Structures are given as structure tokens and as C-alpha cells.
Amino acid sequence: MTDRTLYIVTCGAPLASRVADGVSAARLRGWTPYVLPTDAARPWLEGQDLADVPILTGNRKPTEARRAPKADALAVVPATFNTLNAWANGNANTYPLTTLCAALGSRTRTVAVPFAKHDLAGHPAWLASLAVLRYAGVRIVDPHDGSTASLEPIESGTGDRVAENFRWDWVLGELESSGEIRGVSQ
């Protein structure tokens, strides 16, 4: 197994409570993980065993060296309504969004696990943003069952249960599957 760098971008929703599980699963599969939380995700990380995992927040200063090697892949778990729409629209106004936008531009293998309730998923921007990201090569994984063929919104009040039943193997399997992203071998 080769050592590969995985950025785990996490947003503020119940599935962020499983980041430590993702770190462990990634390490078992030969990845070196780095966690990039949005501001809303930081409270979800409290109490998780992430002591030795680099957590990258905020932009580095011009005089600072690069804090992490270039990512071989990115996992966006969970991808909330706000982050997913901003990312699809090219808004790079936070460190996690800058990283996500750069990954699209460099065609870095990326898997996203959208996590939005019915009312937000019913907004027209949601479907448009999913279409943009899919077109750009992002693999979309349903947090309920790991499906890449369909995506169901989160029923209000069930976020914790969906998070509890989520399997990181769904994400890592998609990252490791062979294939091409927009004609570029990965």
C-alpha cells in the first residue's frame, strides 16, 4: 500500500461527528489524512480523537511554509447546503472552499457526501450545484446508503441516525475506484 494524502473537508452537520472514524478508516487503507473543517464544523470535532491529525484552519501567512503536501484526493463529508453551493459557484472565500475550488481546477479525485434537509434540497440552486459538481468529476455519495446513482435529502430530525449508519468505506471505495475524471486518468 502506498502512502497517499487525503484531505477531509468537513462541514457543520451531524455527519461531522464521524470524522475520527474517517481518519481511522483512511489510515487503514494507506492514506495520510488532513482535516479541513469549516467554521461551522469545528464544534462537531470537539471530543473526537483527532490528537495527532493535522487540522488545517485559516489561510497560511505569506511567510509560512506549506502546511500539508498536495492532496491525492479529497473527501467532503458532510457537504452542507451552504458549502456545496458556494463550491459549485466558485466562491473561494474560506480556506476549505479555496481548497475545494482548487481541487476542481486540478481535477483532483473528489468525493462529496451531501447532507441537506428536504427544504434546502428543494431549492433550485441545490440541484444546479450538484449538476455542476458532477460535471466537474466529483463523485456524489448518498449518506443513507452509499449510492452514487441517487441522492435522498435528510429527513428533519434524522441526521444523527443517518450519521450513525454512515460507512466511510463508501467514500474511500469511490476514491480508490479506477476510472477517469473528465478524461484525466487518476
Rank of each mutant, 00 (worst) to 15 (best):
residue 1 M to D: 10
residue 2 T to W: 03
residue 5 T to A: 06
residue 6 L to A: 06
residue 7 Y to G: 04
residue 10 T to F: 12
residue 10 T to R: 14
residue 14 P to S: 12
residue 14 P to N: 11
residue 19 V to A: 15
residue 20 A to V: 08
residue 31 W to Q: 01
residue 35 V to Y: 07
residue 43 P to I: 09
residue 46 E to V: 14
residue 54 P to Y: 04
residue 57 T to E: 15
residue 60 R to T: 14
residue 66 R to C: 09
residue 71 A to L: 04
residue 72 D to L: 01
residue 74 L to P: 02
residue 74 L to D: 05
residue 79 A to R: 02
residue 80 T to Y: 10
residue 81 F to A: 13
residue 82 N to P: 08
residue 83 T to F: 00
residue 83 T to I: 13
residue 84 L to Y: 00
residue 85 N to Y: 00
residue 86 A to Y: 00
residue 88 A to I: 02
residue 92 A to R: 02
residue 94 T to F: 10
residue 97 L to R: 07
residue 98 T to H: 10
residue 102 A to K: 10
residue 106 S to P: 02
residue 109 R to Q: 08
residue 109 R to F: 09
residue 112 A to E: 08
residue 117 K to A: 05
residue 118 H to N: 07
residue 118 H to D: 10
residue 119 D to F: 09
residue 122 G to E: 11
residue 128 A to C: 03
residue 130 L to H: 05
residue 131 A to Q: 15
residue 139 R to A: 11
residue 140 I to Q: 04
residue 141 V to S: 05
residue 146 G to L: 02
residue 146 G to H: 05
residue 148 T to V: 10
residue 148 T to E: 03
residue 149 A to H: 10
residue 150 S to E: 11
residue 151 L to R: 07
residue 153 P to G: 09
residue 159 G to E: 07
residue 163 A to K: 03
residue 166 F to E: 03
residue 167 R to E: 12
residue 167 R to V: 06
residue 168 W to P: 01
residue 170 W to A: 04
residue 170 W to G: 02
residue 171 V to K: 05
residue 174 E to P: 00
residue 176 E to L: 08
residue 178 S to D: 14
residue 180 E to Y: 14
residue 181 I to H: 14
residue 186 Q to P: 01
